[in-house]
Design a protein around this nucleic acid. Structure first.
Length: 570
DNA sequence: GCCGTTTTCGGCCCGACTGTTTTCAGTCG
């Protein structure tokens, strides 16, 4: 599947055209094309071949032609020509905070700057000060931007920053004159990675809030501070943006600040069609505000039901809302158990009894123990003898602790030749069999897909664990043909996992949605190795919601007896 | 470049902050 590589090409093309000062709307159109193709769960080649590609809003005849050219020849003439017209090193400069296409174009044309190194030389030489519109402060800002760019860690995982984000919210709530504080941006949409933390405060005394915010403990640098918004950098190079609006505008501001940007553009377009104007202060007809206090009111006035934040990615949610076809999303309260937890019998830290008590505290009715199997020596994988002992221990814990059931399970290794690490006879006796790939990551797509498919064809395998194997920011997915896996999952009645561990979130939302479209069922497991990780069920549920998941497609919403019946039926 | 029960041409979301400007351009989200 070439979706990612094609998306990258259109992104570069947009960047090049932007630096060259092309029409901003055309640049935007290319950015949009890049995002759409990067998000596609299906192979773009199939859509081009069938001609369906132009049915997607934002992709027209021009793009379709370029896609066809790429699939046929491996190149896009428009891109090749654009690439030749500009030094390669300039594109990187767009990632320097504070440096935009206009400035880059200026230093390129007037000072012959061709790269980051060239820009640094120009800064040292002082020549840059002679450029029009360039002053001492601007030069300083560019220098700061370069340092920030060179030291930045990129996007961080949602699970890693949520605790910090929630601390900041709690801190600001204590400020006098603040009626409420909310997280916004990609954090509120529960994107798996976060570029910066967006915080929204409601107050009629913004100055006091800005002051409290910029003076917060942990603030390393104040990037900007105005009368209603401010940006700071906290430890770990993480940027936090605060916006303060009056309580009357809370709903409109939440919408504006939650995004996504593309979703907002759609809503504003919709407002425009109705002769209205939408901004962060409200929905306006002329100078009169017709909605703004709550998100529900703004949506209603636009003729829409409430769209949950997880759906606000411009992936068809506005259209679905207009048609009255938004899904009834699964909620945390619908979850009755965790279907993938490790104990200290393999590489976890808690005893089975501790897991049971902690899972009960999470409100679960059942929790499944899925330790590793013998071939995974590094994780103390269980031998057949040890899992026999573990089954006895689980029975003992179930007798001892009331109000929760510990299900017996395993995370059985899918060996590099496709066999499973435990014999069928043993698997048949376990309640919840998760099968996962932990080796042979570099295998060809055919081989690795074949392994997973043969695991799904085993009647005792209930769930495929972390189906793509990706680790956010550190490991790319293996070359699995997900579409095929989803189809076989549907055929065989094998569930696909949302591994809710914060560095995995695998499947992600886009893939969950596609899997369910193809008829597959989903199971959420936290893959906890410590009882302090069981909370990540929240991340799993929000990921499910990002995948438009309803209650009926999720195993974890079944009662214990319904679950066991369902798993036994395969 | 995309799009159209107001349009196949002429639109395309909107505002805050900063710095270099005497009224605005660039950047960002």
């Amino acid at each position: 599947m070439k979706n990612r590589e094609i998306a990258t090409i259109f992104e570069s093309l947009a960047d090049i055209l932007e630096i060259k000062g092309e029409n901003a709307f055309r640049v935007n159109a290319y950015h949009r094309v890049s995002r759409i193709i990067g998000d596609l769960p299906t192979d773009v080649a199939d859509l081009v071949e069938s001609g369906e590609i132009t049915e997607i809003a934002g992709i027209g005849a021009g793009t379709a032609g370029q896609l066809a050219e790429y699939l046929e020849t491996g190149r896009i003439t428009r891109y090749e020509e654009a690439k030749k017209s500009i030094p390669k090193g300039l594109i990187e400069l767009l990632s320097v905070p504070g440096l935009g296409p206009k400035t880059i174009g200026l230093v390129w044309n007037d000072l012959n700057v061709k790269s980051l190194a060239g820009l640094k030389r120009a800064l040292r030489g002082g020549k840059i000060l002679d450029l029009p519109g360039m002053g001492k402060k601007k030069v300083e800002n560019i220098q700061k931007g370069i340092s920030a760019y060179e030291s930045r860690s990129g996007r961080l995982t949602l699970g890693a920053i949520l605790p910090t984000a929630e601390e900041i919210v709690e801190y600001l709530k204590e400020t006098t004159g603040v009626s409420d504080v909310s997280l916004a941006g990609s954090t509120r949409r529960y994107r798996e990675t976060i570029g910066d933390i967006d915080v929204l405060a409601f107050s009629r005394k913004p100055a006091a809030v800005i002051e409290a915010f910029t003076g917060m403990p942990g603030v390393k640098e104040v990037l900007a501070a105005g009368t209603t918004k401010a940006s700071v950098r906290v430890s770990g190079a993480m940027q936090v943006d605060l916006r303060v609006v009056p309580p009357d505008s809370a709903g409109a501001a939440l919408m504006y600040f939650t995004g996504s940007k593309d979703h907002n553009v759609r809503l504003r377009g919709l407002a425009q069609e109705k002769g209205l104007k939408l901004n962060e202060y409200g929905l306006f007809k002329g100078d009169r505000r017709v909605a703004g206090k709550t998100e529900e009111a703004v949506f209603r006035r636009l003729g829409l039901p409430f769209i949950p934040p997880e759906l606000r990615e411009d992936r068809g949610e506005v259209e679905a809302a207009l048609e009255g076809e938004l899904p009834d999303l699964v909620e945390r309260e619908d979850i009755r158990g965790d279907l993938h937890v490790h104990s200290n019998w393999s590489d976890g830290y808690a005893t089975i009894e501790e897991v049971a008590r902690a899972a009960k505290a999470q409100g679960h009715q059942y929790v499944s123990i899925n330790d590793h199997t013998r071939s995974l020596g590094i994780a103390h994988g269980l031998s057949i003898e040890r899992i026999e002992k573990q089954l006895k221990e689980i029975a003992k814990v179930n007798k001892k602790i009331k109000g929760i059931t510990v299900l017996s399970g395993t995370e059985v290794d899918i060996l590099s030749d496709g066999r499973l690490d435990f014999p069928d006879k043993l698997l048949a006796r376990l309640d919840v069999v998760v099968a996962s790939v932990h080796s042979g990551f570099a295998q060809s797509s055919d081989r690795i897909t074949g392994r997973i498919v043969s695991a799904m064809e085993n009647p005792h395998v209930d769930i495929i664990g972390h189906p793509t194997g990706r680790l956010l920011g550190t490991r790319e997915p293996y070359a699995v043909d997900l579409e095929r896996v989803m189809e076989v999952a549907a055929e065989t009645g094998t569930a696909l996992e949302i591994n809710a561990y914060y560095e995995r979130l695998d499947l992600n939302g886009v893939n969950v949605r596609r899997a369910v479209e193809l008829g597959a069922t989903i199971a959420i497991g936290t893959d906890s190795h410590h009882i302090d990780q069981l909370w990540m069920m929240d991340l799993g549920v929000h990921t499910a919601r990002r995948g438009w998941l309803t209650k009926k497609s999720l195993l974890n919403t079944l009662t214990k007896s319904a679950l066991l019946k369902r798993l036994g039926r395969k």
